[in-house]
């Protein structure tokens, strides 16, 4: 199941909290996350990787799309 999470405009620690809630709820699958600051990108990437998810990032127009997957 592919899911999406829009974290643009949210400040610390909300992006991490919402990401963790979503990942814990999904358990496995693919999640597309939209972030708009370097801090959110780094924090979400680090936390998702720590939880065992694979993270790919793609920068576009001041924003970043993180694709987070777990088999």
């Amino acid at each position: 199941m592919n899911e999406e999470l829009d974290l643009r405009g949210l400040s610390c620690p909300e992006p991490i909290v919402r990401t963790l809630n979503k990942l814990n709820q999904m358990k496995t699958g693919k999640l597309k996350i939209l972030v708009d600051t370097g801090t959110s990108r780094d924090n979400v990437t680090r936390i998702a990787q720590k939880e065992g998810w694979t993270v790919n990032s793609e920068e576009s127009n001041d924003e970043c799309i993180l694709t987070v997957t777990k088999e």
């Binding site: 610390c12 620690p13 991490i16 909290v17 963790l20 680090r46 936390i47 720590k50």
Partner: peptide, 11 residues
């Protein structure tokens, strides 16, 4: 943030 992350997400 360092204290918050330890309490909130054990990071």
């Amino acid at each position: 943030g360092s204290i918050r992350d330890v309490i909130l997400i054990k990071d």
